[in-house]
Amino acid sequence: MTALTEAQGTFTESGAHAAAARVQRDLEAAGAKGRRAAAVERPVQGWEALTASERKVARIIAEGHTNRSAADLLVVSPHTVNTHLTSVFRKLSVSSRVQLANLVRALPDD
Rank of each mutant, 00 (worst) to 15 (best):
R36A: 08
R36L: 08
R36Y: 11
A39M: 13
A39T: 01
A39S: 00
A39H: 08
V40N: 03
E41V: 02
E41G: 04
R42S: 03
R42T: 05
R42W: 03
R42G: 03
P43L: 00
P43E: 01
P43S: 03
V44I: 00
V44N: 00
Q45T: 02
G46M: 01
G46T: 01
G46W: 03
G46E: 01
W47K: 01
W47P: 04
W47F: 09
W47R: 08
E48R: 11
E48T: 08
E48I: 04
E48W: 02
E48D: 12
A49H: 09
A49F: 09
A49S: 09
A49W: 14
A49R: 06
L50Y: 14
L50D: 10
L50Q: 04
L50T: 02
A52M: 08
S53F: 15
E54W: 11
E54T: 05
R55Q: 15
R55G: 09
R55P: 04
V57M: 07
A58V: 06
R59S: 11
I60Y: 15
I60M: 15
I60G: 04
I61K: 04
I61C: 02
I61S: 04
A62V: 07
E63P: 00
E63I: 02
G64F: 06
G64C: 08
H65Q: 09
H65E: 10
H65N: 06
N67Q: 15
N67A: 14
N67W: 13
R68N: 08
R68C: 02
S69E: 15
S69G: 02
S69V: 08
A70D: 10
A71P: 02
D72I: 07
L73Y: 12
L73G: 03
L74N: 01
L74T: 08
L74V: 01
V75G: 06
V75I: 10
V76T: 15
V76C: 10
S77W: 07
S77V: 03
S77L: 03
S77F: 09
P78N: 02
H79A: 14
